[in-house]
Design a protein around this nucleic acid. Structure first.
Lengths: 215, 215
DNA sequence: GTCTATAAATGGATAGAC
DNA sequence: GTCTATCCATTTATAGAC
């Protein structure tokens, strides 16, 4: 059970830093593949050049290692958003770009999607105390809010759309097709990761968003 | 590792049948709460009036018990669909009804959603061999296909919409808000299960579908 | 069909040397 | 900071009596 504040022990030497990040990388891969309970520390260290006590030296417990992995995993899309620069685009173009980037990020990072699925199975209790994760997502909402206001003022978006609801719309369509691709494959025999399938759903997602915002 | 065909040992006596279904019910609750690896057989039998060897007597292994739970879990919505009777409704009304029923079923059955999330973490390998699950979902697609054709003929739906894609749209919006409600609560402080929130998203889902199908 | 008791293996976590 | 060796609790699965 994590205590809210995520451990941030910073090793001094470069070799130590490498050891720490090597553990994180191995844990990221293992947890994403087999879940929190499905993964043993033994399997994680087997992917590294180090040994079991080092995991406990840096992370104190399996759950705190998992929490560290979650924090690192959420970092990726934060970088993507920083490089967006939607200000000089029209609201419609900017919204489309944001939708496509969100869709593409999920499609390209199934591990990220799996980790979030796993975290939700566990009641999201490992990310509950992370302020950096909350901040990262707060930024997206503000971006959307700004676009909605601009578009409404220009008469291209209808009024009264809630930014969080719209973010939910975009996220649902980007996330579900990745998180549930295995059951869909088993049930419909359709590979949601196939190139044509992904392209069609990308168009559908953009179109659903644009039509939802249409005046 | 399940072998594809799911075990269907039928006990003879009524008491035996009760034992079997009692195990399934307990396993359903435990697996939904803690996942496949997070649940021990001990915890399952603690919820029943029977003992551990009975689990192995009826289901042979933990994974086959889990597969039996999955098959049972998918059964619920099949019953809902049988009671729909969309034939005498207009395409628009019928599509709205189907969307609302799908949305409501997910909202009312978070355990069902969790089990599917868990199953996807495990590559959906426990439902891969189940023909009943595949059939149940094939029915939905045919219903949607029929509605799309009818609506297109009547000029109220545009042409060229793929039934499976539309089912993905409806499922995404119904599923994600339940499956990911914990991370959303932690990040946005918004309780997606709250009554007003659910009502707003239900309206959004219906509206997104209608606008997506609009001519 | 149902139970008690237990085998056999695994996994989280740590002691203690270097 | 890093490793070897090990402790101890837990867990899947089964043997064998009734």
């Amino acid at each position: 059970m994590p205590d809210g504040s995520i451990q941030k022990k910073r090793p001094r030497s470069a070799g130590a830093e490498r050891t720490r990040s090597e553990i994180i990388a191995a844990a990221h891969a293992e947890f994403a593949e087999k879940g929190l309970d499905g993964t043993s520390i033994n399997e994680i260290v087997a992917r590294t050049r180090t040994s079991k006590p080092m995991v406990y030296y840096y992370f104190h417990s399996k759950e705190q290692l998992y929490a560290a992995v979650m924090e690192e995993a959420y970092g990726g899309m934060r970088d993507v958003e920083r490089s967006l620069h939607l200000e000089h685009l029209s609201p419609v173009e900017a919204m489309r770009r944001l939708t496509e980037v969100t869709f593409d990020y999920h499609a390209a990072h199934p591990d990220f999607v799996r980790l979030i699925s796993i975290e939700n199975i566990h009641g999201a209790r490992h990310i509950a105390g992370s302020t950096t994760i909350a901040e990262r997502n707060g930024v997206v909402i503000e971006i959307i809010r700004g676009l909605l206001e601009r578009g409404e003022r220009e008469g291209v978006f209808r009024a009264g759309v809630d930014p969080v609801d719209l973010h939910l719309l975009i996220s649902s369509l980007s996330f579900y097709r990745v998180s549930n691709r295995h059951s869909w494959g088993a049930i419909f025999g359709r590979d949601l990761q196939a190139r044509e399938c992904t392209a069609a759903q990308r168009r559908m997602t953009v179109e659903a968003v644009e039509r939802y915002l249409g005046v």
